[in-house]
Design a protein around this nucleic acid. Structure first.
Lengths: 152, 152
DNA sequence: GTACAACTTCAAGTCAACTTTAAGTCAAGA
DNA sequence: TCTTGACTTAAAGTTGACTTGAAGTTGTAC
C-alpha cells in the first residue's frame, strides 16, 4: 500500500503517517523509488494507536506498549500496569457518564446542587486531580524511578 | 481561601488556578486588596475539571458543560450528548483494558498474533480512528462552521 | 515602619501532537 | 520530451494547556 491508500483507508492524514513513522509508531516495509510502501498490517496498528490516544496515553507510551512492528513488545508488567491505569480511568469515566446522564434528566436547578449528581461525582472524583496527571506523570516517574505506588 | 490554600489542598498549581480563572473555568468570590479569595466550593469544581480532562474533554468543552459558577449550565441536550460521547469512549477503553490485561497474561509470542487479543481489539477499535477525533474536532467544527460531516 | 514572602499582571516560553510550506524527485500520460 | 500530480524531506507554524519570568504591590512579622 502506498501512503495515500493508507491515509484514505484509515482516515489518518499522510502527514500524520509520516510523523508517526518518524516517531517509530509505524514503519514502512520499504520504498518504491522514493515512496514509502506499507504493509496492510499498518492499518491495525493505526487503530491501536488511535485507541491508545483515546485512552489518554501519549505517543511515547503507546510506542512502548506496542513495541516495534517487527519485534513487538511483550513487557507484561508494563501491559498489566497500563491495564490498571486504564481501569482506574474507566471507573472515573463511568461515574462521570452516569453523573452527566443524570444531570441531563434531573430537575434540580443546577446539577451541582443535585445530591444525586454530587454523590456520583464524588465517586468519580476521588483522586481525580492527582489522577489526571497519572497517565503522564506516573509514566514519567515510573520510567525514572521504578515502582511507585499506584495511588499517587 | 486564598490561592495558595486552594493550590495546596487541590494539588493544582496557583499558576493553573489563575489560568483557569482567566478561561472562566473557576472564579474567585472577590479580592482582599489585590489577592484573590476563593469559595470552598472551588475545590469541587476543580475536581470536576480534572475529571473532564481525564475524560478527554477540552477546557472549552468543560466550561460549556459546567457553565459559570454563579449561573451553572443546564443545557440538558449538551449533557446528554457528552454522556453519549463518554459512553463510546468507555466502551473502547473497556475493550482495550481487557485486551491489555489478556496480553499481559497471554503466552502467544506477540499479543498482536494472539487471536483473543485481536478479537478484543477489534471490538475496541471499531471507529476508534474517527472516534478519536470526536472529542476535539467535532467540537471545533460545530463551533466554527455548523454541520460539517464527521469525517475530516 | 520596613523588610520580605507571597501575592499580582502581562508577556513570553514550553511541550506534545500535529499541520503547513517550500523546494525537490519521479512515474506516467499527452 | 515535457508536463503534471503525487510523492519526498526539512523546517517552520499551529493549537491547547500550561509554566516561567519580569516587574510591580501588599499583608504581616519583626
Amino acid at each position: 500500500m502506498d501512503i495515500s491508500q493508507v491515509a484514505k483507508q484509515s482516515g489518518v492524514p499522510a502527514s500524520t503517517l509520516r510523523f508517526y513513522e518518524e516517531k517509530g509508531l509505524i514503519s514502512s516495509v520499504g520504498r518504491q523509488g522514493i515512496r514509502r510502501v506499507f504493509a496492510a498490517s499498518v492499518m491495525e496498528r493505526l487503530e491501536l494507536i488511535a485507541l491508545g490516544r483515546v485512552a489518554g496515553f501519549s505517543l511515547e507510551e503507546i510506542a512502548s506498549i506496542l513495541g516495534s512492528e517487527e519485534n513487538p513488545n511483550i513487557d507484561r508488567d508494563l501491559l498489566q500496569q497500563k491495564a490498571c491505569e486504564l481501569d482506574n480511568t474507566i471507573q472515573k469515566l463511568v461515574a462521570m457518564r452516569d453523573g452527566l446522564q443524570h444531570a441531563a434528566a434531573c430537575k434540580a436547578p443546577s446539577h451541582l446542587e443535585c445530591p444525586r449528581f454530587r454523590r456520583l461525582m464524588k465517586l468519580a472524583v476521588s483522586g481525580a486531580i492527582k489522577g489526571e496527571a497519572s497517565n503522564k506523570l506516573v509514566k514519567k516517574h515510573s520510567s525514572n524511578k521504578a515502582l511507585q505506588p499506584t495511588n499517587r
